[in-house]
Amino acid sequence: MTNNDFPAHAPLAVQTRGELVESVHYGSLIALKNDGGTLLERGEPAARMYPRSALKPLMAVAMLRAGLELPTEQLALAAASHSGATAHQETAAKILANAGLAPEHLGNSTDLPYGVAEREAWLRAGHGPTQLAQNCSGKHAALLATCVKNGWPLETYLHADHPLAALIRDTVAELTGEAITAVSTDGCGTEVFGLTLTGMARAFSRMATAAPGTPERRVADAMRAHPEMVAGHGRDVTTLMEAVPGLLAKDGFEGIQLVALADGSAVALKISDGGDRARMPAAVPALLALGVDPALLAPFNNLPVFGGGRPVGELRGLPTTN
């Protein structure tokens, strides 16, 4: 790989300390209007990247198309990167139990709970890494339940030649409007596809505005009805969905953030170095440009930077005026 292969990222957020800019966060971003046209873009949103866990809602759509039926709370967890709270783990276990399965059937990696408070409580209780505690356990439980529904093999559900894997690839290609040209393996063991931010924004827009009762709309509505399942207490994705009516949001490792509004306008971004702290502040100026009430977005931008226990700077997204 040469420098010519690197995406042409642009500054999306800055952290100040005193009078100086202490750090600059680069990345790429696109905001789509509700008619699908581009409102603004930064960096190179047409470059291929791995959406990581932001793919989970699209995967959940594929599962519903394959006949999976879940209560809305469980469906939201199927699209989640959950914090590993007791409610999250118990809900994942219910998905398995209702399909006649047990946690031993899970094929995802083991981990501690993702949420800080949840992880500390888990460790204080003397627990170690498990598959149920890992943030993707809801998705994997739903994948297995889909296999049971269709009589597909369980042992190979993560293999690229499995019928469910083929359905997921086709669904992702349809919703994003992009051919699948790059495939790798996500941290939990499922396939992850190289897509553009433009394609992912398009997919979230389609889900947010799909006709009621369709698999796309059912996943979006489940996530919006149960934002606490999509991430967890204190997580910015959950808090944002609770704050803005009709908003659909999903984050992903390596600095990915996807947001769609009820009218179908959407934002997709990636922080270039994969860092997490600038992900939400970088999205705020684009959401403001799409007309979201500034008061609702205030908790997600201009975040205080402390020195000696008092605010001495801030982390903020950069203005998006073209």
Rank of each mutant, 00 (worst) to 15 (best):
A54F: 01
P319H: 00
G128H: 09
A260L: 10
G138M: 02
D186I: 06
G18E: 08
R124G: 01
E242K: 07
T91F: 05
E69F: 12
D221E: 08
R202V: 14
R279D: 00
A54H: 00
R124M: 13
T146Q: 00
K270V: 12
I95K: 07
A231E: 01
L106D: 01
A211F: 14
V116Q: 13
H9E: 09
E120P: 03
A268D: 04
H25V: 08
A66W: 11
M1A: 15
T16A: 06
P245C: 02
M241W: 05
S23W: 15
H140I: 04
K250L: 04
D263H: 06
K56I: 05
D293C: 09
S23R: 15
S53N: 05
R316A: 14
G18R: 10
G246C: 01
I256E: 04
G199H: 04
P304S: 06
D111F: 00
M280T: 00
P51Y: 10
M63S: 06
L175M: 02
I30V: 13
A117M: 13
E254Y: 12
E104D: 07
E254N: 03
R235L: 11
L32F: 06
T214P: 07
P299H: 01
L40G: 04
A220P: 01
Q257N: 11
D170Q: 08
P51Q: 10
L197H: 03
N34Y: 13
V21C: 12
S83F: 14
G27I: 01
M229N: 04
R169N: 12
S23M: 13
L39C: 01
R17L: 15
G264F: 12
I256F: 08
H9R: 10
T190G: 13
D111R: 02
V192W: 09
E44T: 02
V237A: 05
L143M: 10
L296D: 02
F253I: 14
A10H: 07
L32I: 10
Q134W: 01
S184T: 08
T209N: 06
Q89V: 12
A260I: 10
V148E: 05
Q15M: 11
L269S: 06
P294C: 09
T239E: 15
L112P: 07
T110S: 15
D293K: 13
A286S: 08
A262I: 08
T176I: 02
A145H: 05
Y50L: 15
D236L: 11
E254I: 05
A166F: 10
Q15N: 06
G199S: 08
E104I: 09
H82P: 00
P113K: 00
T198N: 06
R316E: 10
P299W: 05
G246Y: 03
H88Y: 08
A220I: 03
L68G: 04
L32H: 00
M59K: 12
V219P: 00
L269P: 14
